[in-house]
């Protein structure tokens, strides 16, 4: 299976490991990521305003490109995933936004939300399958206690993201099990890391960080995994000294593709 791949800005700079290891693992698991040509930054946050379309256009271009290749659009960064999936939902369901975006873009064929947007994790679960993944594991992460951090972007709004139960998700825990490690479930795993507040309210983000990491540490985790570079930035330097990794880093270890 070939996926149109939207890496996003941060995966080309600060989060190169998230991207590089994802590509290595994909090759090992038998699916292909073909980077979209000339992709543009998704904007980082889903633009909620009903009266503007400019902030949605980069997502629509990527979605239309995937449609032209008749492929699902795969993302890795939680933020890109959230933005593109929500914009796709707007293009499918909001006639006003759809009309205005198409009127502006003048694409060869109008775009109406046809592309399926999938997260790398969903491919692991729904296409590869965790049973098959388990068989592909060369170095089971035996004894490792891994806490999955979902944050907000992967799960909410649940009706649009439709990846997992937004209040009691299991996709990353199932991945952790498949890699041979023990998942650590803790209540703060779907609460926000402080997000974009970390530029001008570092104190507020520190409170969020400590609450989340302490919650995971209390349940005895030895590391936290995430899919989002901003979550990584906000959680990484924590008082509990719990290492935070991209889930692809752990996956690459388990699959022995380093």
């Amino acid at each position: 299976m070939v996926y149109s791949y939207f890496p996003g800005c941060t995966l080309k700079s600060k989060a190169t490991e998230l991207d590089r290891k994802a590509r290595l693992c994909a090759a090992a698991l038998g699916f292909e990521l073909e980077e979209i040509e000339n992709w543009q930054c998704c904007g980082g946050v889903y633009p909620m305003a009903k009266d503007e379309i400019a902030t949605k256009l980069s997502s629509v271009r990527a979605l239309a490109d995937a449609k032209a290749h008749d492929r699902p659009l795969l993302t890795l960064c939680s933020a890109c995933h959230n933005v593109i999936k929500q914009v796709n939902n707007d293009m499918l369901k909001d006639a006003d936004i759809r009309t205005r975006a198409n009127n502006y873009l003048q694409l060869d064929e109008p775009y109406g939300g046809e592309t399926k947007v999938v997260h790398y994790l969903e491919v692991l679960r729904d296409e590869v399958g965790f049973d098959a993944l388990k068989k592909a594991v060369k170095n089971p992460l035996k004894g490792r206690k891994v806490a999955a951090y979902y944050g907000c972007l992967l799960l909410r709004p649940g009706a649009v993201m439709a990846m997992d139960d937004p209040e009691n998700p299991s996709i990353m825990e199932d991945l952790i099990k498949a890699m041979g490690a023990d998942p650590v479930v803790y209540p703060q795993r779907n609460e926000c890391c402080g997000g974009y507040l970390s530029l001008d309210d570092k104190e507020a983000v520190a409170k969020r960080r400590n609450k989340i990491v302490k919650s995971a540490a209390d349940f005895g985790c030895d590391c936290i995994i995430t899919a989002c570079p901003l979550c990584m930035y906000n959680l990484a330097k924590n008082d509990c000294d719990v290492p935070v990794l991209y889930f692809t880093e752990l996956l690459a270890q388990a699959l022995g593709v380093e």
Binding site: Y186, P187, Q188, E191, S215, D218, F219, G220
Partner: peptide
């Protein structure tokens, strides 16, 4: 808005 089961068995 949220009930958080803690490691010590209490509920936040």
């Amino acid at each position: 808005g949220k009930v958080s089961p803690r490691a010590d068995g209490k509920l936040d």
